[in-house]
Design a protein around this nucleic acid. Structure first.
Length: 501
RNA sequence: CGGGAUGUAGCGCAGCCUGGUUAGCGCGUUUGACUGGGGGUCAAAAGGUCGGAGGUUCAAAUCCUCUCAUCCCGACCA
């Protein structure tokens, strides 16, 4: 046996977390950097995960009364200028299209030619162009609400990119709704946050904190921004989905006006909400271990992989047949309202190699079937989440496969929740706060629940020193009022403080 | 965009300081044999314009300049 590292991924999380993250992506074959700066190629395994996410989210959007549509990739420059805060937020990271053709250059090669009269920007988000269309579509209160979602790519020219977490181009969905009343828009904002949270927990097995962003973290142009925040295994926070109440800001800027029942002209109320391929990054950093990716069963492109163990040609056909029958039986079993996704890996690889291939890709259950199991009417089952494996009676396993996947989902969720809980601390003084976020070894902070003075630049300055930001004010916080640990002012509630991506 | 690091075979690296035969190693790949409940053994083979462009030199992976890209830290953000 050749010398192998103790873990499939080197370095380990403990040794070098950012490097570990890169390696997991490579070993699981999720994505690769591309020749285009800051942009990545999402490979079939990564894409299949995204498709499963899309499917689960899309189903929830439709169930809550939304429809899909598509708006252009290009946005006239003048559109972005409409909403002042929106401009400020996005202007510095826009890709701009200024020409519409190429011509042979004087020194060979091609040079841009045919300047555009008005430059186009590539959407960093679509509030402005969708708002423009909504202004045309909305005349009467009878036209409202409009609840549209689009699956799209967007471009934000960020300074620093990281695979899945922040790339120049990324994929997402953006929902844009338009309502007659403030209450209805607020309700929508809140509803979609709940959809994201439910998806995160029930599909991704990722516990999240629902909360509201403080003014400085708000979406440019929003009245309020709601967020789901998750804790990664390095104890940093990752914003995993956002839902914005835009008030009448965009409606006023873009003249989305309707005539109400009294015949009066009214500005509409709008919302927008989005979740992106960043969720794949969240998935990786929530569950994966030093042997690679760990997939929650509902998102796993293959939930069970069957590995035939062939020992010589005599038993080959018999084992294959046994595996195929097993596959057929398993495919008839249900998990999470659909048939279990099963794959037989028939490649002519050695058993060990094949096993590690699927371990690194995060397949929840591995079934190894050799002549011995066949004789005993058993299957040898390995669980990705716990690393444990055991022989199980074939019929029993088939009958319980769905339950087992369910158990894996719950286990992953509980493990992630336990990590967050054991790294969340209620903090009462600034000294304690400093110590919490300064200590270096295992305990380099996590989430801190603190009373704070809202919209106070002093507070922001004091926490920025420790590279900490206010992640959100939890919606379900019941701590009640207290005293700001930074300024001593009165505070109406606690917020989640933490380092973040 | 500031600070730091790195770019040599698919992956991980050595060589560079102190320029000088055909640029090495491990893993992987291909072929064959032996194997086969765990990323195996033996043998053979393929694979590199040393990130790119200039320069210094008789001679550059090695020295200099520029440039591109990646990674880390920061500022900014899904």
């Amino acid at each position: 046996m050749a010398k192998q590292p103790k873990t499939a991924i080197t370095p380990t999380r403990a040794e070098d977390y950012p490097q570990w993250y890169q390696q997991v992506i490579r070993e699981a074959d999720l994505a690769e950097i591309s020749p285009v700066r800051g942009c990545m190629v999402i490979k079939p395994w990564g894409w299949a995960i995204w498709e499963n996410m899309q499917q689960a989210l899309d189903k929830r959007f439709k169930e809550t009364g939304h429809v899909n549509a598509y708006f252009p990739l290009f946005i006239p420059l003048s559109f972005l200028e409409a909403e002042a805060e929106h401009v400020e937020g996005f202007a510095k990271e826009c890709a701009v299209v200024t020409h519409h053709r190429l011509e042979p250059g004087p020194d060979g090669g091609l040079v841009p030619a045919g300047p555009l009269e008005e430059p186009l920007i590539i959407r960093p988000t679509s509030e402005t162009i969708i708002g423009f269309m909504y202004a045309k579509w909305v005349q009467s209160y009878r036209d409202l609400p409009i609840k549209i979602n689009q699956w799209a790519n967007v471009v934000r020219w960020e300074m620093r990119t990281r695979m899945f977490l922040r790339t120049t181009e990324f994929l997402w969905q953006e929902g844009h709704t338009c309502h007659a009343t403030e209450e209805e828009a607020l309700e929508e904002t809140r509803l979609m946050l709940d959809v994201y949270a439910e998806f995160a927990e029930n599909v991704m097995a990722m516990p999240v904190i629902k909360g509201e962003k403080t003014a400085d973290e708000r979406f440019p142009g929003a009245v309020s921004t709601l967020t789901i925040e998750a804790m990664m295994q390095d104890k940093k926070a990752l914003q995993s989905g956002t839902s914005h109440f835009l008030g009448q800001n965009f409606a006023k800027a873009q003249k989305i006006i309707y005539q109400d029942k009294q015949g009066l002209q009214q500005h509409a109320w709008t919302t927008s909400w989005g979740a992106s391929t960043r969720l794949i990054g969240a998935l990786i950093m929530t569950h994966s271990d030093d042997d690679g990716l760990v997939l929650p069963p509902k998102l796993a492109p293959q939930q069970i992989v069957i590995l035939p163990i062939i020992k010589g040609d005599e038993t080959r056909d018999a084992v294959m047949q046994y595996c195929e029958e097993l596959e057929a039986d398993l495919k008839n079993q249900q998990y999470a309202d659909s048939n279990i996704r099963v794959f037989i890996d028939k490649r002519d690889l050695r058993g060990g190699e094949k096993k590690w291939y699927h371990v690194k890709r995060g397949v929840p259950l591995r079934i190894e079937v050799g002549p011995r199991d066949m004789e005993n009417g058993q299957v040898f089952v390995g669980r990705r989440d716990t690393g444990k494996s055991e022989g199980i009676d074939r019929a029993e396993f088939v009958a319980n496969a769905g339950d087992m996947l369910n158990d894996i989902h719950d286990g992953l969720f509980q493990r992630a929740l336990a990590l967050r809980q054991s790294n969340t601390k209620t903090i009462e003084t600034y000294e304690e706060f400093e110590e919490y976020f300064t200590s270096t070894d295992e305990g380099q902070g996590g989430f801190a629940m603190c009373h704070f003075a809202e919209d106070n630049p002093e507070v922001l300055k004091m926490i920025a020193k420790h590279k900490v930001s206010i992640r959100c004010i939890p919606l379900e916080d019941k701590s009640g009022p207290g005293t700001c640990i930074f300024t001593g002012e009165a505070s109406r509630c606690r917020a989640v403080f933490g380092k973040s991506y």
